[in-house]
């Protein structure tokens, strides 16, 4: 090993590449803001997350050198994304499939949190008729 090569794997990326990526990121920002004003039904969310993923990938691969560095860093990064995905997917699977067998599982009883109740006038107290034990 040569004595003075202290910073290993020194891949110097041309400034042009960095600037091109930077401009690309700004353009994609413009695109994502533009798309958000077009009504695309359910596709808006997919477009927004899709564009964000492309941007994040550019940052990771170029700015963070994942494209040029040792593969171990890419493996670590991918692992993080994979487990985030597992967490999200399995949790959302539960949330979205709760009503499959019993529709009652999907809904909450009170739609609004207790803090919104204070604003409304309290309902008049009405004791419910107990029809069983009342012997007239």
């Amino acid at each position: 090993m040569s004595g003075h090569s202290t910073q290993e794997n020194r891949h110097i990326i041309p400034a042009r590449t960095y600037i091109a990526v930077g401009v690309g990121l700004l353009l994609l920002t413009a695109v994502t803001v533009g798309v958000s004003f077009i009504h695309l039904e359910g596709w808006n969310a997919i477009a927004a997350v899709g564009i964000a993923s492309v941007k994040a990938l550019l940052v990771a691969l170029i700015f963070m050198h994942l494209l040029y560095d040792k593969k171990i860093f890419l493996v670590i990064f991918s692992t993080a994304i994979l487990f985030l995905g597992i967490f999200l997917a399995l949790t959302m699977f539960d949330i979205l499939s709760r009503g499959e067998i019993y529709p009652e599982y999907e809904k909450t009883i009170e739609k609004n949190a207790v803090m919104y109740k204070k604003a409304e006038p309290a309902p008049a107290a009405e004791p419910v008729e107990d029809s069983t034990s009342d012997v007239q």
Partner: peptide, 9 residues
């Protein structure tokens, strides 16, 4: 116990 008991109870 509002609603669970009637007056008599």
């Amino acid at each position: 116990y509002q609603g669970m008991l009637n007056d008599k109870q």
